[in-house]
Simulated assay, not measured.
Amino acid sequence: MSNSHLFLKSGFIRTPSQNGVGRYVCQLQRVVLKFCKNNGSSRGMRDFIETELVDFAKNNPGIVVYLKPRRHRTAVISAEFLNGEKQWISCRNLTKEEITKWLTLLKTQSGNHQGLRLRKLIHTDHPSIQGPWTPYTFKDPAENIVEYPNKELSKARILHKTATEELLEIFNRQAEDPENRRVE
């Protein structure tokens, strides 16, 4: 067993509550593209800046994009998120298509999961090897290939009376026999 998890920050996943329910808020706040004007390892970054940066900035008006030329350094993407987290990606010898993919990935992330040892609210000394229970655990596999709505499955699901039907029957019994008001 490795002890590398001891050096990671620990915490719970904190995401913006209900992000995307009303409207989606991109969590990427700022991107700094650092590159060298002459170095060969920054060629992909320079190509991206010349051809695709303007389109990226127009398509993502909520993301601030900075360019930072540096002498004799390798290309780097530095990203800052709304929660204050920062990430950087080395772009040494990457093509402009690969840089576009990295920026798309950063745009869709929340910034919380990099180097975070996830903690759980529950703990057990004897964890189950079968996994947690879900509502689909004991569901009939034949239902996966059925087209819905299905009359046969609808009839099969009504095994018991509904709560409303039970209450109506109790009410009718009480109305018929006013002396016996006791609920069974």
Rank of each mutant, 00 (worst) to 15 (best):
S2M: 04
N60K: 09
L116Y: 04
I158R: 15
R73Q: 14
T74P: 00
E50D: 15
Y24H: 05
T164L: 15
F171L: 14
L167W: 05
R43T: 10
N19Q: 05
F56Q: 10
A57R: 15
I170F: 05
E143F: 13
L8A: 01
L153H: 08
L105D: 13
N112S: 10
E184W: 06
T100M: 06
P61D: 10
H126V: 09
N60A: 10
V65A: 04
P127N: 11
T100D: 03
D125M: 11
N39M: 07
N83W: 02
A156G: 04
I49D: 02
R92V: 04
L168Y: 05
E176T: 05
F7K: 12
R92Y: 07
R92G: 04
F171I: 06
V32D: 03
A163Y: 07
R157C: 00
K107S: 11
R119A: 02
E85A: 14
R71N: 13
L118F: 02
R71A: 14
V76N: 11
L167C: 04
K107E: 08
L82S: 06
Q130M: 13
W102Y: 14
H160P: 00
L153Y: 15
T108L: 07
P61V: 08
L33E: 09
N83Y: 01
L33G: 07
L121Y: 05
T51Y: 08
Q109S: 13
T95G: 15
T108A: 11
I158L: 11
S78W: 07
V21R: 08
T104I: 01
E166Y: 12
L121F: 09
R182N: 11
N150L: 07
E85N: 13
L118Q: 08
P69H: 03
N172G: 00
P149D: 07
K58Q: 14
V64M: 10
